[in-house]
């Protein structure tokens, strides 16, 4: 049987039923999972943001801590530097004094030695000169004098020479 294409009949009841059947299955398979996954995604993004915020806060705290630590460290370094400087200065001073005293003692000793050497040399020179002079004098004046008077005489001469000088 065929009829006009503009009609309204019992098909409408079936269409209504089929609409609700379709809606039931689409809600079950399409809309609910879709909305759930949207919620899940937004939840996840939110939690990610929160986590990032937390991490940032923690980083801030950490930075603060590091800053304080750095300050403390730099203070300590300064202190250590000062200490080291003072120590070095003290050491330098001590060393200088030590070296000075050493040098002085060495100098003193050397001077004394020089003095000794000089006096020794003077003595020996004196003796030599005396001997030489005696020999010379005995050769020159050919005068026989006893040993003692010779020496006295020469000593006189020598004192004269020294006075003259």
């Amino acid at each position: 049987m065929s009829g006009s294409f503009v009609n309204f009949n019992g098909t409408s009841i079936l269409q209504l039923m089929s609409f609700f059947i379709l809606m039931y299955f689409l809600i079950k398979f399409l809309y609910k999972p879709f909305l759930n996954i949207l919620d899940k995604r937004s939840e996840e993004i939110k939690s990610q943001y929160e986590k990032a915020d937390e991490a940032r806060k923690e980083a801030e705290k950490f930075r603060e801590k590091v800053k304080v630590e750095m300050e403390r460290l730099s203070e300590r370094t300064d202190q250590m530097y000062e200490e080291a400087k003072a120590r070095v200065e003290a050491y330098e001073k001590a060393e200088r004094t030590r070296i000075q005293t050493e040098v002085e003692s060495i100098m003193k000793r050397a001077r004394r030695e020089i003095e000794e050497e000089r006096s020794k040399a003077e003595e020996s020179l004196k003796a030599n000169v005396i001997t030489l002079a005696i020999a010379l004098a005995s050769r020159i004046i050919q005068k026989d004098l006893d040993e003692k008077s010779k020496r006295e005489f020469l000593m006189d001469q020598l004192s004269k020479v020294r006075d003259m000088r």
Binding site: S2, G3, N7, G10, T11
Partner: peptide, 14 residues
Amino acid sequence: VWQIKVPLPSILGT
């Protein structure tokens, strides 16, 4: 269009 008639006990009609 093609139509069929459903017997009377059903409420569907055509």
